[in-house]
Design a protein around this nucleic acid. Structure first.
Length: 373
DNA sequence: AACGCGGGGGT
DNA sequence: ACCCCAGCGTT
């Protein structure tokens, strides 16, 4: 390592800290020193923008002010406060880990690296974030922001999609932490990535470390970081049944609980099926027959109309759901009573359930349109 | 190493 | 249309 590189590192840490103390955003979790609050914020911030997280964080800590209260709450309640935020296993893992902290560590978030990283839902990044931000320990917290900033500043061409690159970045990031400044430095690094050293068009003119940024000095800030492409999302075609109740269930709609594991685990949905391709999806007859047969297999005899009363698209990271909703009725409603996976909902009890956004939208639209008829 | 896992915003 | 976001768990 040349003297020049050492100077560059010292400069980086000092200038970045000076800048951060001047411009840092006033975020809810930065007003607290409670490790539990730091932890919650870091889990919510995984793959999720700051602006999206803020209202969720405020509601969450209001409802679950302490780790113990989170541990004692019904899981359903925790999920409800996560509704719309996505990656729901984060919420389940967070509560599971909170219960572990209560039973294993007396309800105090541990400050030992191995204990922290052993908590469910806490990986390398979050371990570093908790240790550095909550306890000011000199641990790196390398996320997408940090890899982008370091790739540019040091002009590194390593593919940031590779795990080995993250390991290298952690070593580098740790070597940059100014003595006793881990908490602010790590947040400053991410703040720079979020506000200045942005993915598309970085604001190099406003960057506190621009004079020694190798990527920029070589005019390559737009090419960095190097990242291999993700696979394109696959289209999935689906038909859903909007089953309207009769008699004592008049005004209600039949909904179904998703399986315990996997995509949107334990959340509620309109009963629906997948069809092979776009061609099948064009045919309403295909949807009608498919729904009737599939639900018959689950013991529900229904009649579906070849009439589309709603349509929606739901975009996940790895797939795209294209859903057409057919109007339908249940042939024998008494038969449903003892099926725990199925329930009747109305606008009155709608909020007692946890919905993926796509079904929240479809049902809300349905209830509104019906009132206008 | 590759894949599954939400939802939203920026360009 | 594509990319990215204060990533992690499973296989």
């Amino acid at each position: 390592m040349s003297l020049n590189a050492d100077e560059s590192k010292t400069y980086f840490g000092e200038e970045l800290l000076r800048w951060y103390r001047k411009v840092r955003r006033d975020l809810p979790w930065r007003r607290s020193r409670d490790p539990y609050h730091i932890w919650v914020s870091e889990i919510m911030l995984q793959q999720t923008r700051v602006d999206t997280v803020i209202p969720y964080f405020n509601r969450f800590v209001h409802r679950f002010p302490s780790l113990t209260e989170l541990a004692l709450a019904p899981e359903e309640d925790v999920l409800k406060h996560w509704e719309g935020l996505g990656y729901y296993s984060r919420a389940r893992n967070l509560q599971s880990a909170a219960r572990e902290v209560v039973s294993e560590y007396g309800g105090r978030v541990p400050s030992d690296k191995r204990q922290v990283s052993g908590l469910k839902g806490v990986g390398p990044y979050t371990t570093g974030a908790i240790l550095s931000i909550a306890y000011n320990q000199p641990e790196p917290a390398v996320d997408g922001n940090v890899m982008r900033v370091l790739s540019r500043y040091f002009c590194l061409e390593d593919d940031i999609a590779r795990p080995a690159t993250r390991i290298r970045m952690e070593t580098l990031a740790q070597s940059l932490i100014p003595e006793g400044e881990a908490a602010d430095f790590n947040q400053a690094l991410m703040e720079l990535g979020a506000l200045v050293c942005t993915p598309k068009s970085p604001s190099c003119g406003e960057c506190p470390v621009r004079t020694m940024c190798l990527g920029r000095l070589e005019g390559r800030e737009r090419e960095l970081p190097v990242k291999t492409k993700a696979k394109k999302a696959r289209d999935v075609y689906r038909f859903a049944a909007l089953l309207e109740g009769k008699g004592e269930n008049a005004g209600k709609v039949l909904v179904r609980r998703r399986p315990e594991t996997g995509l949107l685990a334990k959340m509620w949905e309109l009963p629906h099926i997948e069809v092979p391709d776009a061609v099948a999806w064009e045919s309403l007859a295909e949807g009608k027959i498919g729904l009737e047969k599939a639900l018959a297999n689950e013991g529900l005899r229904i009649h579906a109309d070849e009439r589309v009363i709603g349509e929606a698209q739901h975009i996940f990271t790895h797939l795209v759901w294209k859903i057409r909703v057919l109007s339908a009725t249940v042939k024998d409603e008494r038969y449903i009573a003892d099926r725990t996976a199925y329930e009747w909902v109305s606008p009155d009890n709608f909020e007692d359930y946890v919905w993926p956004n796509v079904f929240r939208k479809l049902l809300t639209e349905y209830f509104i349109n019906r009132n206008n008829d």
